[in-house]
């Protein structure tokens, strides 16, 4: 089994590197990945996406909303295509429309015009019930402020997406425990969010997002609330996730270092792609 736990600064008792090497099936790729995690600015190993199916397709998407008396044009005809297994970073200045774009991709918001297709579904036409199912099963969200439920312990927080998917308790519990182990929180399952560090909370949030094995992982500034070391560890985790599950990752960030580690960077300015 490939462990996702790499080097978490607030979890020193593990020896993730040794484990990584020991359990890796593909030694060359594992070493390359390990290298990448240790030297974030080093050139990324090439990832062959030829023939990969398109997971996300946005065509001429616009989004406008009212802010007081003013009408704000958050997105102005954005067209984007993301393939399965791709790691894309969305960058831009504050107010450029990054988060709005991510929320539209994740079905949390509706475009004013244009078409959004995710995993072959035109999500702009989905009714609330189907849209909820889409958010539950097709995408996984990771937020800057983690948004774990404060009254649930780590175990139950991780299980929540499974509950909404109607999954049986046994397999769901086992899956949550496995994911907790893979993000290095096996010994924190009984803890409430307030008893976890920021990095641990974000790892729990990632594990929660992965519970229903989504095809698309959307992260809105996932390191924005963490220190640099923990931030790097989270990005390492994203990469490991992609490696293991071939999950498409789209991530909003301000940080050029993180953007540099993505396969591709999409830059926005004033609601338009650069």
């Amino acid at each position: 089994m490939l462990m996702l736990s790499l080097a978490f600064p607030d979890d020193s008792r593990q020896d993730p590197i040794a484990e990584f090497i020991a359990y890796a099936g593909d030694v060359d790729r594992a070493i390359a990945l390990l290298e990448a995690t240790r030297r974030p600015n080093a050139p990324k190993p090439a990832r062959n996406l030829d023939g990969a199916v398109e997971v996300v397709r946005l065509e001429s998407v616009t989004k406008s909303y009212k802010l007081g008396r003013q009408r704000v044009e958050a997105l102005k005809g954005v067209s984007v295509s993301v393939k399965a297994g791709e790691f894309v970073a969305i960058t831009g200045t504050s107010g450029s429309g990054k988060s709005t774009l991510l929320q539209i991709m994740g079905g949390l918001d509706q475009p004013t015009s244009g078409q959004v297709t995710v995993d072959g579904q035109n999500i702009g036409k989905l009714r609330d019930r189907k849209l909820s199912e889409f958010r539950n099963k097709t995408v996984g969200f990771v937020f800057q402020f983690f948004y774990l439920q404060p009254f649930l312990n780590t175990q139950l927080n991780l299980e929540v997406p499974g509950m909404f998917a109607g999954a049986r308790r046994g397999p769901r519990k086992q899956r949550a425990a496995e994911l907790a182990g893979e993000v290095g929180l096996a010994d924190r399952l009984r803890h409430l969010p307030k008893e976890l560090s920021g990095g641990q909370m974000q790892r729990a949030a990632i594990a929660r997002a992965l519970l229903n094995s989504p095809k698309l992982l959307l992260a809105d500034e996932p390191t924005g609330n963490l220190d640099r070391t923990n931030g790097r560890a989270i990005i390492d985790l994203f990469e490991a996730v992609r490696e293991k599950f071939n999950t498409t990752i789209i991530l909003v960030t301000h940080d050029p270092e993180i953007a540099n580690r993505a396969d591709r960077e999409i830059s926005l300015q004033d609601g338009r792609l650069l």
Partner: peptide, 16 residues
């Protein structure tokens, strides 16, 4: 409200 919003974001239906 925030708890409800988080549930909705991760796929809870209104009926849930």
């Amino acid at each position: 409200r925030r708890e409800t919003a988080v549930f909705r974001a991760i796929g809870a239906k209104r009926l849930d």
